[in-house]
Structures are given as structure tokens and as C-alpha cells.
Design a protein around this nucleic acid. Structure first.
Lengths: 160, 160
DNA sequence: CTTTGCCTTCGAGTGCGCTCGAAGGCATAC
DNA sequence: GTATGCCTTCGAGCGCACTCGAAGGCAAAG
């Protein structure tokens, strides 16, 4: 769409790469927090992205469909996940894993789209989420205690 | 049903009490692990049970309906939650809060019903659940890290 | 050429865990 | 008596987050 096909074959997907992702370099501190591998390829297929994130290809398409992430297409029309997309997806999956609803994530990302003046709202949202995470941590500790108790009752050891 | 009504009025529900719950005394260690109050009344209405557990009355009826817990009825046909029922409900809510599905909980409770010879299976189940809890704890730590990172970016402090 | 396999879009379906509402019973207050 | 409020059972409904399947495109292998 943006570039005309010069090369053919397998390289085409990679060749199409210099597109869109270098606008902002993706905060390296966040990138390392998200624990993406250092040798993360520039462009990944949906199968590779699924493998790396632990989500299914179906779920990745779903996240894109509902507007959580933008994903480029290569010359064949296939999805091509760049560093930015991967970072966002892992970020989203962290929020999901900590119980943030998809509608709240959508709202947060909409605030991001609206620019810097929404930072106070984003801050409030994240602070509230932090409270939720801490509550969950406490609940998990309680659950761990009763689970370990039962394991003890059944004569087992905690490490299976 | 079991006793004929001698008293009338408010005491009737309490009067019906000496029924069923004293068969086994409920493991005091588990009871304290479940953090039920020391002054837990012998018999609670569904509203009181809901209040104490943080579940809704609807959910308590649902858990009973699907066979997770047995609950006695008073002379008026109202549910009356004894210590044993409360302990089980809190136990269930701990398992739920740590991500055990209702069908797995049902299975576990069915094993309990089947008697001592199912202890190895219960042990395995709880050990597996322990693994799940630990995985969730790790995921929550990662989520907490990115959340705190964002809070920092937005100029906020972790304690709101 | 055909086969294989991964990819596309689209819309519909699924499973879970509640959640609700209707219709009615019981008990205390007035 | 009636009104209020909490309780009962029953079946149905709902929201969420996927999850799936059909129909078809693209490209490397044989």
C-alpha cells in the first residue's frame, strides 16, 4: 500500500518493514519491564506474536478488532507486529492478568490517544488499579494459606 | 420440620438451632485461617452470611443450588447458616478468588464426600492449585511493576 | 500445475459465573 | 386488620472475553 513491491518472495514481508514504527522509539525502560526478549525481531507474524505473548492468534485478532492495538499489514495483507505493537500487547496482557476489564483498558487507551492533558485521569486510573492489584495480592495470600493448610492435612509437601 | 414450634416470634429461628452442626466441630485451625470472627453467631440469616462473606445473597443461593454447600432451614423455611456452612463458604470463596473454577471446586467437594480414600487426589488437586496461585502471584507482581511505572510516568505516587 | 499451510475477514457461538425478576410466604410494626 | 421488609423457589437472562468456523487468498514445495 505504501511501498511498491520491489523484491519478491519471502523477503517481501521483512522488506516492507521500515514503516510506521520508528515514529517514537518505545520507552526502553517500559520495554524491559515488559520482559520482551532483547533479540525481538523487528516484525513478527501473528503466530510468532501469539507464541511470544502466550495469547492465541484468535485473541490477538480480537484485540485488534476492538481497537486495543493497531497492526500493520505486509504486502500479502498479513499482520506484521512491530516492537510497538508487541509492547502494547504485552502491556495489555499485564493489565488483563491483573483483572482490568477490557472496557477499562479501552478507556485508558482512549485517554492516551487524547493526549497529554488526560494524564491526571490516567494517573487516577492507574492508582485505582494499583489498589485492585494489592487487594488481589492479599486475597491470593489468604488462598495460598488455606491451600497449603489442606496440602498439609493431606500429608503432602508444598512443592509437588 | 424436625422440631414442633413451641416458642413463637423472633426466637423461633434461634430455638431451632441444636441441629446438625455439632456432628464434627469444624477444625479450629482452618476456622482461624478462614478469618471468621471469634464471636461468629451460631446461626446466620442469608443477609448476615452475605454481609460476612462479601458475597451476595443471590450468589449464596446459587452455590447451594449447584451443590457446593448444604444449608439448613429454620421453622419458617428460611436459610440458617451454621459455623460449618460459613466455613465452607469462605473456603469456597478463597478458592474462587484464587481462580479455581466452580467445576473444579465441585469436583474437589465430591472427592471430600467420597471419603478418606480420595485424599491422594485431593492432595494432587491442591498442589496443582498451589502452582496456579504462585503463577498468579508472579503475574500480579509484573502487573504491579508496570502499573507503578505508569504512575511514576504520570507524576503520581504509589500510595494515592 | 497441485498441494500444503498459514494467513485473511466476517459473523456467530460458547462457557462461565453469576444476576435478576416474578410470584408468593412469613413476621414484626402500626 | 394492613403495610413493610426479608425471605422463599423457579426459570430465564446477561455480560464478559473470548472462541470458532466458513470461505477464500497467498506463496513456497514438489
Amino acid at each position: 500500500m505504501t511501498t511498491t513491491s520491489l523484491s519478491t518472495g519471502a523477503d517481501q514481508r521483512a522488506a516492507i518493514a521500515a514503516y510506521g514504527s520508528a515514529l517514537e522509539p518505545v520507552d526502553p525502560e517500559l520495554l524491559s519491564l515488559l520482559e520482551l526478549p532483547d533479540d525481538l525481531p523487528d516484525r513478527l507474524s501473528i503466530a510468532e506474536a501469539a507464541e511470544l505473548t502466550g495469547l492465541t492468534a484468535h485473541t490477538l485478532r480480537y484485540y485488534e478488532r476492538i481497537g486495543l492495538v493497531d497492526v500493520h499489514r505486509d504486502a500479502a495483507g498479513y499482520r506484521s507486529y512491530d516492537r510497538r505493537a508487541m509492547a502494547r500487547i504485552v502491556f495489555i496482557s499485564r493489565l488483563r492478568a491483573s483483572g482490568m476489564s477490557i472496557s477499562t483498558i479501552s478507556h485508558y487507551l482512549e485517554l492516551v490517544r487524547q493526549g497529554d492533558q488526560t494524564e491526571p485521569q490516567r494517573l487516577a486510573l492507574m492508582q485505582q488499579h494499583r489498589g485492585g492489584i494489592q487487594r488481589q495480592l492479599r486475597e491470593l495470600q489468604l488462598a495460598l494459606a488455606v491451600t497449603d493448610y489442606k496440602i498439609g492435612v493431606y500429608g503432602g509437601s508444598a512443592a509437588p
